[in-house]
Structure formats: structure tokens, C-alpha cells
Write a protein that binds this DNA or RNA. Structure first.
Lengths: 246, 246
DNA sequence: CAGATCCTTTGATCTGCATCAAGGAAAGGT
DNA sequence: ACCTTTCCTTGATGCAGATCAAAGGATCTG
């Protein structure tokens, strides 16, 4: 990782402490995490780390969005993880990174040297427990994602992605965050394509298709209006009882 | 879960203890796990549990193969997990099951009531740590699987599956287990199709295609001979430095 | 503001896999 | 051994999405 080191802050001021690794720690444990942590920031588009890199740092996303991607030699790329604030990068007990990590927007990471972090892990069960919870949540999300990649049509894939973004716009930390019928796409057509296992042309065509069918309105190419959320949900092929994808 | 209760065995005789949840426990901790565990067995094809079922039991696979699947209302089915001996079913802290669980072969499970298991989890860090390790391994496997589903061709999917089975035939618990050039497929064409996001017809055609191209030999429809493992690896589209898929 | 670069859309065409349909082979039951 | 059922293969056809190609729109730069 080659991002710029910005500052060492107190963990109690860490904006993600309530959901990230330290969510269950007491003050003493927070202090111990503080001793080994530091912040790094990256600009949009920057490569944070590449497959094969030595994994001597693990980190939590504090701000911004990053992606995990696997790439085949001929250039085919599949996104395998979308990292949002509080998500974790790297895993204890592994020496090298398995994926390319890229900053989609400007990103700030809260980093820990892996070795001392692993030591803390053994001594603070609350962190271990929190990591297990996060890993299982990600596993559920990955499995919903596999259903999407393996069995959904292009239109269903796009609709699922829109629902996912709509849900997140609506609901952040359990708080309703504003008008669901107007959502802003935080990622480019190419990023969507790599997320969904499609080409950018197909993504674009599906957007115009959904617009022509009156399911969505487009305002520029980053703002989507959804007059009828139920109508969109119907397009996803989901049964409505809610997957756990993000 | 409606399998037949067979016997309560001592955990130290549990055939999977070296890799499963109890891998890191001392004798005292094993004793505590023993108090709450019991075995159940299922016959090939039997449904072990269904999406939406109350998750009051978690379990380790002792013997046999089971699958996790997600199903859309119209019948489209995607396998999202292949459970082999030592793999874990269910997750602490969740009330209902997210997937259909089916026995592919005859299956024996080592079960724990979820509530007391969760209590033990808080008290025995070794189990917590082992679960985290297993969850992270599964997450890596799921991500390789996503690359396969999203970006690989039918032929590459089949080749990847064959490599996966070959690797496992070759290497079980670090021990070389016999001739790699002759592998037995443990699953039907339909199961493969649901694994790979294909139809059974396409799976079948790809097998005949690989045979006609001399990449594999078929002996019946469950025995595959691979004269040239490198040749098969080439077909997978992988770069050879090894994913972690199972 | 002109030029360059990047992102997105749209069109034309192609193709890999799905779908529909039928027949063969294996496995299990009586 | 025969019937039934399930699994697998093969063929014919169709279509969703990829590919190839080109032309807007944005955004950035000097």
C-alpha cells in the first residue's frame, strides 16, 4: 500500500468505531488498538494494493468506496467485493493479498500492522468476535451475489443493483436518509459492468430499456429517479423477503 | 432439520476433530463441546433444511457432501456452497437459515444446539478463532467462484470444476491420495450445472467437447481420465498460481 | 474557447449458451 | 428379467448478451 500517511488519531474519535473492528471494545482495549493504528488516504482511481502484494497491513475503510477485483490475464475483470465504510481489508493469518484493491472514490483507511493486530486478536475476544460477524455477513452477501451472477438476466442484474443502492440510500445505520425515489449512482458504467458480470454496452442498454419502459427516469447518467419502487423490485426476480447483499 | 438422530459420541473420537470447530480445543474444552453435541444422518438426495427454517441447530459435516442453494421462484437454482467434511452449517447470531441445504451423498452431521453453542463461543476463544478462519476461507472460495460465474466461458467453467475435483482427489489433508489422472465425479450433471451457472445440456456438451479434443477421457459418465493435467489447466483460463476455491 | 480525453450511448452483427424435443443408457424396484 | 424412473446425450433452433464500430456528451487542460 502506497497511500499517503495522514495522521494518527485517537480511536475513540475514529468515525467508524461503532461498526468496525473496535465496535465491542472497552476503553482499555481501544487504547491498545490505538497504539498500532494509523491512517492512509487515497485519491479516486488509485490502486490501493495488488494481487500478490505482501499483506503486512490490514485495514478498515473509514471513508469512501473501494473495490476488490479478480482479473484474468486476458483482461476479463470481475469485482468480488465492494468495500464501504467499516468494511475490512486483508485477513489475519494470510501472507499475500488475493485481489486487486482500488479506490473508487477518495478513500481513507484505518490501518494496522498485521502482526501486532494478530497478537491483539488473540488477547481481545471482542475483536475476534466482531471480525467473525463481519466475515459471515460478507459471506452471505457473496452468496446472494453468486445467485445474481449465475442465474439472473441482464435486466434483473441492473434492477438488483439499483435496489441495492436505493436501500443503502434509504437506510444508513438504521436511519432513513432521505428520498428513495431519487438515487445517485456512486459508480461508473464500467464498475457496474464488472460488478454484474456484464459489458458496459449491455449495462447502458439496460438503463435505456428501463427508462423506455417507465420503470426509471434518468437525469444525466448518474441520477436515477424511481417513480415506483415496487415496480423495480418486480424486475429484480427476487421474492422480496430480502437478501443480505450489502 | 429432520434427520435421524444416531448416536452421541465422544468428541475425541469425532473423525473431523482435527479440522473442524474443535481443532484447537484442549481436553477440557472438548468435554464441554461434547455435552451439547449429537449426531444426525441423512440419505443421499434428502433435504436437510430449507430457506426460512428456524436456525436452532448449527452443525459440522462429519461425512458426505451437502450443498447450499438459493432458488428463485421460477425454479432457477444456484448453488452457493459445497459442504465437505469439516465444513460448518449455520451461523451463530442468525435466527433463520438463508439457503436450502441438501445432502448430495449420504451425510452425517455433528450438531450443536445454537444457543448453548453461542455461549461456548464466548467462553472458548479457540472455537471463535477457528470459526473465523473457516469463514475467511469460505469467503475466499466464494470470491473465486464469483469470478468463475461472472466471467468464465462454459468450457472454462467445466475445466475449473475438474481441476478443483482433481486437486481434492490428489490432496486431502496435505496427503497425496492417489492417481490424479483418474478422478471420480462426486456429483451429477445437474448439480454441476447449478454449481457453474449452466444448464445440464451445456455441461454434457462441454464434456463431449473436451473428450473429442483429447483433453479428457470418459469412462462411464462419472469417471474422468486426464492424460495431460497441464492441458486441462490451460483450459481453465486461470493463471496457475492457484485460486483458493475449495 | 479549442483541443484532448474519457465516459456513455446507439447501431449492426455475431455467437455462445439456453431452450425445446427426443432418444439412449444406467439404476432401482418387483 | 422386465418395468419404471432417473440421468445423460444429442440435435435443431432461438435469443440474450458480446463484440465491433462510431458518434455524441462530459470533463479537464492549457
Amino acid at each position: 500500500m502506497n497511500g499517503e500517511l495522514i495522521a494518527t488519531q485517537n480511536c475513540s474519535s475514529c468515525p467508524i468505531r461503532h461498526r468496525a473492528v473496535c465496535a465491542r471494545c472497552d476503553e482499555d482495549e481501544l487504547g491498545r488498538l490505538n497504539e498500532i493504528k494509523f491512517y492512509k488516504s487515497y485519491v479516486a482511481g488509485q490502486t490501493i494494493a495488488m494481487r500478490g502484494d505482501a499483506l503486512d497491513v490490514v485495514a478498515s475503510v473509514v471513508e469512501g468506496t473501494a473495490t476488490l477485483e479478480r482479473v484474468i490475464e486476458d483482461g476479463r475483470t470481475q469485482m468480488v467485493g465492494l468495500l464501504l465504510p467499516s468494511d475490512f481489508i486483508g485477513r489475519p493469518g494470510r501472507e499475500t493479498l488475493q485481489y486487486d484493491v482500488t479506490a473508487v472514490s477518495d478513500v481513507t483507511l484505518c490501518c494496522f500492522q498485521r502482526k501486532p493486530f494478530e497478537t491483539l486478536l488473540m488477547e481481545i475476544p471482542a475483536v475476534q468476535q466482531r471480525l467473525l460477524e463481519m466475515a459471515l455477513d460478507e459471506l452471505d452477501a457473496a452468496r446472494d451475489w453468486m445467485l445474481l451472477l449465475g442465474r439472473k438476466t441482464a435486466r434483473e442484474k441492473i434492477a438488483s443493483l439499483l435496489m441495492l443502492i436505493a436501500k443503502r440510500t434509504m437506510n444508513q445505520d438504521g436511519k432513513v436518509m432521505g428520498d428513495v425515489s431519487r438515487i445517485e449512482l456512486p459508480i461508473s458504467r464500467e464498475t457496474m459492468a464488472n460488478f454484474l458480470g456484464l459489458t458496459i454496452e449491455t449495462v447502458s442498454r439496460q438503463f435505456t430499456g428501463l427508462r423506455k419502459d417507465g420503470v426509471i427516469d434518468l437525469d444525466g447518467n448518474r441520477i436515477v429517479r424511481i417513480p415506483d419502487l415496487e415496480g423495480l423490485l418486480f424486475e429484480t426476480g427476487d421474492d422480496g423477503d430480502g437478501g443480505t447483499l450489502f
